[in-house]
């Protein structure tokens, strides 16, 4: 634990135990999403599916990166991951991104993907609001993650015909925003 790091956040008026629990729940959402996206990505096949496979794969890898980036902050603030992975699964901040009943229905898969990203955008916006001007490091981290989640949402929503977002798929390395927390 970073004793003073935690103390500073407490002094700023944040309930650190609640914040840590929220971070653990979001870490659970990232790791479970990584798992579910693996299944979704495997099923993105055929003429319609293949075109989406690459962004689904990028989102999958970046979500795993988000998990990796959140973990050190959880422990710095005196928190920990639950010893039982089933408990971790059940505390996820977002519902499971399960494969639709008809796995050949690419539009249904896209809806699962976009809803998962929207849940994440909501969650990190909330953490940013909670920590802004108070917990600079958690803010910096959740804002970096938020940047990537917003781009994921826009990729999938474009395929659903919700209008242009101005974004393109990743060029170069994954996690352009979060990578500084992974080094």
């Amino acid at each position: 634990m970073g004793r003073v790091a935690r103390e500073m956040v407490e002094k700023a008026g944040i309930n650190v135990d609640q914040l840590v629990e929220l971070l653990v729940k979001n870490a659970a959402a990232e790791l479970t999403t990584y798992y579910y996206y693996t299944i979704l990505r495997c099923n993105l096949i055929g003429l319609e599916g293949e075109g989406i496979k690459e962004i689904a794969e990028t989102a999958r890898i970046e979500d795993r990166n988000h998990f990796e980036a959140l973990v050190p902050r959880i422990y710095e603030l005196g928190g920990q991951l639950p010893g039982d992975m089933k408990v971790f699964n059940d505390m996820s901040a977002c519902p499971p991104a399960s494969l639709p009943k008809d796995p050949r229905d690419v539009t249904a898969i896209l809806k699962v993907l976009v809803e998962a990203e929207r849940c994440a955008v909501r969650g990190y916006t909330y953490i940013c609001n909670l920590t802004a001007g108070k917990d600079h490091r958690t803010y910096d981290l959740s804002q970096a993650i938020l940047n990537e989640e917003i781009e994921h949402e826009s990729w999938f929503s474009e395929f659903l015909g919700e209008g242009p977002s101005g974004h393109f798929l990743r060029r170069g390395e994954t996690s352009p925003f979060v990578s500084k927390f992974l080094r």
């Binding site: 609640q18 629990e21 929220l22 729940k25 059940d90 505390m91 996820s92 901040a93 977002c94 519902p95 499971p96 969650g123 909330y126």
Partner: peptide, 12 residues
């Protein structure tokens, strides 16, 4: 709701 397990939602 998965997000209201044990009657709590998003910690708070």
């Amino acid at each position: 709701s998965f997000l209201w397990r044990h009657g709590t939602h998003q910690v708070i």
